[in-house]
Design a protein around this nucleic acid. Structure first.
Lengths: 204, 204
DNA sequence: GTCTATAACTCGATAGAC
DNA sequence: GTCTATCGAGTTATAGAC
């Protein structure tokens, strides 16, 4: 049987993600973990504490994978392809995660974000430099590196956050939507690569 | 002095958007509107009712503008340019709105979405057809129309939702971030137009 | 560590005076 | 229509037995 602390985190994660902080109930978390409310407070002292623990846990799983890829030595084209594939696969496995993380961020504001991120050394500068170098080498067209990065992340993540809206407009069911996301991987890559393709006369 | 009902909706909008439904307090809404809780219930009967009223109000302002543009007779290139400009300007005025709408969607699920959208006749089919026709005419490269639409919306909206994260990573302050979003309009347009530019030999 | 029981509190909702 | 006062449900958090 799973240790209580781990079991609590896992249950809390499920409840927080599906209900959001404000509407999550300690009772439901306890029930799901097969323990009682008292023990919840024994381990985590307060709801807010428990929430922090869960959020850190969740973010700990995501950030390092992406950071590793960003720091690798591959060409930009290779990186884009791998990044999109890895990222969307991650999201397919955890479709409700980005919505949850971003909701709570929105509600809690900047300071909270700062606190969560302080454990990680996110440093996109090396990536920016790589983009600049490839532009100068004429391998890709002239583009602002920050916007490029934001564009790619947006195209990957947003459809998962806006899933209920897209599903409503498109009429797709859950399986179809998943399938659509899988094919979308290639589309995002080719869309992006087309967008950054060098102009026909890159030197002139 | 503003009529109570209008004043309540406006105050409720602020509180719901900044706190989310679960953590919004009727007391705070009443305070902000300069009235008391009793009156809140006199007008709206329950918190849930008030929330619905606010959400409908908010969506009513957004949807029609976009729908009008989508249905217009301009070329795709023109539409993309106008859409991005209009949409981002709208978001700059209401930066916390998309995060709020999407949070509540996440928490409430598909049925809720359906209920909200039933007043509107969102019909992207005409737009899809237009894309297909321009592909066949060789005006743009071969691209899945749905993915094109999702890509554009993603690039516009996502940076507003993920604002706290981007701000943290980039170190930009609020004014800088706003400025960045303004310049980003052109970048999204040119990125998209590059991406859908026809191949050099569109006919072969 | 784990449980039960309950205190302490928050908040939406209602009743009733004006 | 607007206010004050208060109820009562639902929740977090604590005390204390085992």
């Amino acid at each position: 049987m799973m240790q209580s602390r781990e079991q609590i985190i896992e249950s809390a994660k499920q409840v927080f993600i599906s209900k959001g902080y404000g509407e999550a109930r300690m009772q439901e978390i306890a029930d799901k973990a097969g323990i009682n409310k008292g023990l919840l407070h024994y381990y985590f002292k307060s709801k807010e504490n428990l929430f922090h623990a869960v959020l850190k846990e969740v973010i700990k799983k995501i950030i390092p994978k992406l950071d590793l890829l960003i720091k690798s030595d591959e060409t930009l084209t290779e990186k884009i392809e791998k990044f999109v594939t890895l990222y969307i696969d991650l999201l397919i496995e955890n479709p409700y995660l980005p919505g949850f993380v971003l909701s709570e961020m929105n509600l809690r504001g900047e300071g909270f974000m700062k606190e969560i991120m302080q454990d990680y050394d996110i440093n996109p500068i090396k990536l920016m430099v790589q983009v600049q170098m490839e532009i100068q080498a004429g391998k890709i067209g002239n583009i602002n590196p920050i916007n490029l990065l934001i564009n790619i992340i947006s195209m990957c993540v947003f459809p998962f956050i806006a899933r209920p809206i897209f599903k409503e407009i498109s009429g797709l069911n859950d399986d179809d939507y998943l399938q659509f996301m899988k094919t979308r991987k290639k589309e995002i890559v080719s869309f992006t690569l087309s967008a950054i393709k060098p102009q026909i006369y890159p030197i002139g």
